[in-house]
Nucleic acid binder design. Sequence first.
DNA 1: AATACTAGTTACCTATTAGTTACTACAAAG
DNA 2: CTTTGTAGTAACTAATAGGTAACTAGTATT
Lengths: 107, 107
Amino acid sequence: MRDQNFCNSHCPLTRAIGSIGNKWKPLIVHVIRQRTVRFGQIDAFIPTITRKVLTEQLKELEEDGIVNRVAYKELPPRVEYSLTEKGLALLPIVDQIQDWYVKFEIA
Amino acid sequence: MRDQNFCNSHCPLTRAIGSIGNKWKPLIVHVIRQRTVRFGQIDAFIPTITRKVLTEQLKELEEDGIVNRVAYKELPPRVEYSLTEKGLALLPIVDQIQDWYVKFEIA
DNA sequence: AATACTAGTTACCTATTAGTTACTACAAAG
DNA sequence: CTTTGTAGTAACTAATAGGTAACTAGTATT
């Protein structure tokens, strides 16, 4: 998202939303989970995301200390992503969002 | 948000994000909390939102069964908003997002 | 000699979201 | 008789997010 009004707000919830409150980031965190996954795997798990947008989102998540990125100097390239401690702490919240939705979803 | 790819996804987390995963809705839920508040109060609590956008977001939240809207037939108009059971169930999650952010924020 | 492989990047274009300004209704207060 | 107050709406514009297609590197396979 990177909305300056949000990132510089005096309200911590607003800043939190500025950091993870967009449509892709919770999904990316949810896909990585406790694993170490490659770029292409994340891309395959989120069918509607494009590589360009996935790259952008992963870069922001890395900047915000939510994911680790390890690039191997090989060809073809290999880049592995995993959650940091901060990212792992987000998992129970993401799970609860899913549970909340399922609980109130009209069958 | 109302992204059709999200709302019709087979993944419940994706659908959940489609319903509350935008920048304004968690904030609106957080502002209403357990109270009954008027339109103008919400507007005053979220300084950077415009009336137009607030109206749109509240309408979607109402459609999704997250807020109740009660309009009194008076002049000047009075409209009161409160959280439904579904909306109230979102409060602990929103609080946890805030706690998560505060915990990992670099001082 | 051409093709596939991965994890991107670049330039360009479109769609969605958000902001701006002006306007409404009618009663009550000054 | 003008102003104030509330909760919007309409028309329009600006900003941002997201999508598309083409391209890169160097090794390994066909």
